[in-house]
């Protein structure tokens, strides 16, 4: 599954929100990929280092891809988390 999301929280994906994302991403069987639509760079959603290196800021468009048995559930929960990021 694939979905494009615009990040809206003030500071983008930094350590704290990134950590939340990675922790959740690891709880699924499916393979999770995150792509920065500006730079077209794509990384595994289960590595915080890789995720930080995407340089995702406020208003960055990203594409989330989930592949596997629980891909719908993973997509649902991960995009929910991204849309509700604070600070």
């Amino acid at each position: 599954m694939e979905k494009t999301i615009t990040i809206t929280n003030e500071t983008g994906i930094h350590t704290r929100p990134g950590n939340k994302f990675v922790t959740l991403a690891k709880s699924f069987e499916s393979k999770i990929l995150v792509k920065n639509e500006e730079t077209k760079k794509e990384v595994k959603g289960t590595s915080l280092l890789k995720l930080l290196s995407l340089g995702i800021k406020k208003n960055t468009k990203i594409t989330l891809t989930t592949t596997g048995n629980d891909e719908a559930k993973a997509m649902n929960e991960l995009s929910e988390l991204l849309l509700n990021l604070k600070d």
Binding site: T15, R16, G18, V22, T23, S47, L48, L49, K50
Partner: peptide, 16 residues
Amino acid sequence: AEIFDGHITLVDDEDL
């Protein structure tokens, strides 16, 4: 304290 949660995840990074 959550800052260190982030650090722990970084150390625990599978790719690293």
